[in-house]
């Protein structure tokens, strides 16, 4: 019955609703942006009311939160974490640094454009983005999920070679398990 296309659609709608209501975040505290997460989660802004909740390990997480600048050294770990997450999964680029390098635009060892290496679903602009923007970002992500448009993981799978090529440019000694799901 699942194979049936229409019923699959209905299931998808319900599932997407559930997914958007329940966002488990793996906050990868790569940069200074991590400091904005606690206010987002605690009493003033209380992201939990939106179903946003921290996850401890990538296996359980839905959303990978890249909080701020990403150094070339950290990239490998981030990729690893992303690949360990289970589908469906999403990436939020947090802060200007993930968009264009921000204040590190001319640094030799930061990733300027995160999207070249990981499929970012939602960017949150700002340096730092205030908790309000973070919440707005989550809202956007929820919207995308609800519409079934947050398909970064699919994009990553389809364009894996391109992503890999970009990643390997940054990471010279590439020893990673094969990503094949």
């Amino acid at each position: 019955m699942i194979n049936d296309k229409n019923s699959q659609k209905i299931v998808d709608i319900i599932q997407n609703w559930a997914r958007k209501q329940s966002i488990w975040v793996l906050a990868y505290g790569t940069g200074c942006g991590a400091i904005e997460i606690p206010p987002t989660m605690t009493s003033r802004y209380d992201a939990e009311r939106l179903g946003v909740r921290g996850a401890a390990t990538p296996r359980q997480a839905d959303v990978l939160l890249i909080t701020g600048y990403l150094t070339t050294k950290t990239l490998k770990r981030v990729i690893r974490v992303y690949e360990q997450m289970q589908d469906p999964k999403y990436v939020i680029g947090f802060g200007s640094c993930t968009i264009n390098g921000g204040m590190y635009y001319d640094s030799y060892n930061t990733i300027k454009v995160l999207d070249k290496y990981l499929p970012v679903d939602v960017y949150i602009n700002g340096c730092m983005p205030r908790p309000e923007s973070v919440l707005a970002g989550f809202g956007k992500l929820q919207e995308l999920i609800g519409n079934g448009e947050a398909n970064g993981a699919t994009k990553y799978k389809e364009n894996l070679e391109w992503y890999r090529a970009n990643q390997k440019k940054i990471i010279p000694n590439w020893v990673m398990p094969e990503y094949n799901w």
């Binding site: 319900i14 559930a18 469906p88």
Partner: peptide, 12 residues
């Protein structure tokens, strides 16, 4: 919701 979402996730 959490449970339902978890059930919907792939277990690869």
């Amino acid at each position: 919701i959490d449970a339902f979402k978890l059930y919907g996730k792939t277990t690869a």
